Computed example of a mutant assay.
Amino acid sequence: PYIDYFVPSIDEAGEMAHDRDPARVAAFFKARGVKNCIITLGAGGVYVSPEHGEDFHLPAFEVEVFDTTGCGDSFTAGIIVGIIKGWDLKQSARFASAVAAKVAMGLGSDGKLVSFDDTVAAMNALPVKTSKVEAA
């Protein structure tokens, strides 16, 4: 009940909630006091259940994936940056997805991360997946 932002993968959260449906998994944690549940879905994007407002899904960016090492941690760091910047959760999740996409395009956890401004540009320029991909 003391968690403001919970950012697990669907694998982690699903194991704890004994479910794989992102909406039901988010509801499981919110019923236990989590304020904002942000569930990463790998190639399926991200499912966000905010404290205020409607739940939403954002598709992943369409990039050539080279190595996913560090994508989850980099996504979480992107969420933190967005929160610090005062962005809403939708903008924060878009930025976090761009951070993870940049990491996935290179080798190791640094991937193709260059700078904050470069990542914002990627967030605004990278194409998004058009078909819904089920969580891994």
Rank of each mutant, 00 (worst) to 15 (best):
F6L: 14
V7D: 03
P8W: 12
S9W: 06
S9F: 08
I10T: 08
I10N: 05
E12V: 13
A17C: 08
A17E: 01
H18D: 15
D19T: 13
V25F: 10
V25S: 05
A27V: 12
A27W: 10
F28C: 08
F28Q: 09
F29N: 04
R32I: 07
V34Y: 07
N36K: 11
G44T: 11
G45T: 10
V46L: 14
Y47R: 03
S49T: 09
S49C: 12
E51M: 14
E54R: 15
D55L: 08
F56Y: 12
P59G: 02
F61R: 05
V63M: 05
E64I: 04
F66T: 00
F66V: 02
D67A: 00
T68P: 01
G70R: 11
D73S: 05
S74H: 09
S74A: 15
F75T: 02
G78H: 07
L89E: 08
K90W: 06
R94P: 00
S97C: 06
A100Y: 02
A100M: 07
K102P: 01
K102V: 03
V103I: 09
G106L: 00
G108T: 00
D110V: 03
G111Y: 02
L113I: 15
L113A: 10
F116E: 02
D117V: 00
T119G: 04
M123F: 02
N124C: 12
A125E: 13
A125L: 11
K129R: 14
T130S: 12
S131Q: 15
K132E: 15
